[in-house]
Design a protein around this nucleic acid. Structure first.
Lengths: 113, 113
DNA sequence: ATAAACCGTGTGGTGCACTGCACAGTCAAA
DNA sequence: TTTGACTGTGCAGTGCACCACACGGTTTAT
């Protein structure tokens, strides 16, 4: 069982983020001391926190991560990953369109100037 | 000279956005009535507003647009567009990396499952 | 026993780019 | 002249994902 600071160091999340994740029930401590309310995390918590860090890095929003965590068997995870991938692909397409627009903009500027 | 609602309809910006842009001196009305403080816009305003809409669509932040507008001759515009294009390219690269990570994630999941 | 380090709660702040609302003055048409 | 549409100001709120801080209790090491 790890206390919040130790667990923060293990996961790369800050203490504040861990408290926040507990508050919104995204990642609840494995155990909370009944009198002093200290949060304790275990190796199961670590597995989940590690997954959250990965998902966050992939661009998952808090709400999407909540959806992932709500399904303890993670059966939805693959579908959500595929969905996120499509999402990212659309973002890329939009960025490419903007780059093309800038190129047009620059080209038209050169003709006039 | 156009009043704010008419100008909003012309540009596609909302009245509130126009007031906000005036407040932060991104796009100031061509004329402000001295007693009732009504904002009036003209065709020069329209040219600028149209540019702002395009830049916003390209992903320019307010601060970047302010930088563009500060230079009335728009001599910096081309350099800023090139910079923004590189910026967008980097964003695309990061997105591609995330897509690759998801593919790895999905592939590793298939092996184990 | 005491000091340092740690933990809790609660609340407010951050940055971005607006949006919404209340209240009040103003203008245009009938 | 009255009604309704329009405009102004000022300020609070939005969503996201936290961060910072004050204040006070707890634990750990010396």
């Amino acid at each position: 069982m790890y206390r919040i600071s130790e667990f923060a160091a293990m996961t790369g999340l800050t203490k504040e983020t861990l408290r926040y994740y507990a508050e919104i029930k995204l990642l609840e401590p494995a155990y909370i001391h009944p009198t002093n309310h200290y949060r304790y995390y275990d190796d199961g918590s670590f597995f989940l926190a590690d997954l959250l860090v990965k998902l966050r890095c992939l661009g998952f929003s808090i709400q999407e991560m909540v959806t992932v965590m709500e399904d303890e068997s993670f059966e939805n995870l693959e579908a959500l990953l595929v969905e996120k991938k499509n999402n990212l692909q659309e973002q890329m397409d939009r960025l490419q369109m903007k780059i093309n627009e800038i190129d047009d903009f620059l080209a038209s500027g050169k003709e006039e100037g």
